[in-house]
Write a protein that binds this DNA or RNA. Structure first.
Lengths: 218, 218
DNA sequence: GTCATAAGTAACCGAACGGTTACTTGTCAG
DNA sequence: CTGACAAGTAACCGTTCGGTTACTTATGAC
């Protein structure tokens, strides 16, 4: 009998690789590239350090794998794809912002990895993988936005890049700069209500901010 | 004759301490706490490692000194204090945002240190020092904002913390997440025009977003 | 001059790092 | 049963880390 499809008792390559990958993600997210150690990763994974290197190459190789895997997770979630059905600008803004917040809440490691990565110039991030993480909601946003501009409801100086930027900024800072930001503003980021009220407040603010006088007062 | 006020030829405590402090700021900003090494810092400063430890204590002590010194620099700049004379909401928003961007452009090390610090829980940042970095522009913002709300020009759900948050978010992400954000949005952050157009666009967007219909259309 | 003192350094320590090598052992086709 | 191969490990290597110790040397008051 072959091993194929069966769960071997003590020795299992795929399962071990999965455990290593998981342990590495936790370690890199927590301590960054230079702070993480292969000794701790192998300890977390419950195997020897030599095995980690055998399966994933050098520390840098392992880091690259972890980072791009996390980005790929973002692009595969279902709620993201549901956004392609949105009808109005404000509805879509709220949907995207809400989804960005939800993803970051469910994957606390993600924002941390992005921060670490920016601090060393994003040289380990595969551009194609990162672009895929935008999801179909953004293509939808572009078409709806341009449509609203033609009808004179949205101001002409608004473009998709700037909207995406502010949505990302609001989200990223919430999760990766909460410590200094709490000292600065006093906002209780750990409170669940803060997050939902943030989404509502800022999506409305953005919708009003990009609208023409006609689009808003008429 | 005493050393007081004179520039000694080869041995000079204050000057050496200044060089060490400068070298440490560059090193910590570039590589973070765990990535930085005392050997490199002493090499940059042109002195021995033992002297670094003698003057600043442990690596952690040195890091704390560097971090809080940078924050103190923010609170001492002149343009920040000029904001206390602003008259209108939109004028003040533009002033604060413009100044935040200017400071970060002039002090690239600052945003990096803030990112590193958030990644290890902001445990080395002195809260009093951080709060002082808000400057008088924010107290002015509160009073002008509340005044405008009483007159019915600004919506009631707007508060200073949320405005400060979005201003900081727009700025912080511009400087500390530019690498991943460029891949994501295609925005050319390195271009000088991008920054000034950002300040104009978002301060206008915010001003319109927080205004009541009356405050905007009337 | 000279001498106490402070500025500054070379050499070293144990620990921890990333990575390699030589080895053991579970598993399965025949 | 058995042997070959893959899964997995213990022990080690050279290097670098933060930090200490014992030492040199420039400086200024007397």
């Amino acid at each position: 009998m072959t091993t194929k499809g069966a769960r071997t008792q003590t020795r299992n390559k795929e399962e071990t690789q999965r455990r290593i990958s998981e342990a590495a993600a936790a370690e890199f997210s927590h301590l960054g590239y230079s702070g993480a150690t292969l000794d701790r990763i192998s300890e977390r994974a419950g195997c020897s350090k030599a095995l980690v290197i055998r399966y994933f190459g050098t520390k840098q190789d392992l880091y690259r794998t972890v980072l791009n895997t996390k980005y790929a997770e973002l692009s595969q979630r279902e709620t993201f794809h549901a956004l392609s059905e949105a009808e109005t600008v404000s509805e879509l803004l709220r949907g995207i912002l809400s989804d960005l917040f939800a993803f970051n809440r469910e994957h606390p490691a993600f924002a941390r990895l992005v921060s670490w990565e920016n601090l060393n110039g994003a040289e380990h991030l595969d551009p194609a993988t990162a672009k895929a993480a935008r999801g179909p909601g953004w293509a939808r946003l572009r078409s709806i936005l341009e449509d609203a501009q033609e009808k004179g409801m949205v101001r002409g100086d608004v473009d998709v890049g700037r909207i995406v930027y502010v949505l990302q900024a609001l989200t990223v800072v919430y999760f990766s700069n909460r410590h200094t930001m709490k000292i600065l503003t006093g906002i209780p980021f750990e409170s669940p209500e803060t997050m939902s009220s943030f989404v509502g407040f800022y999506s409305q603010l953005l919708a009003r901010g990009i609208a023409t006088d006609e689009g808003k007062c008429a």
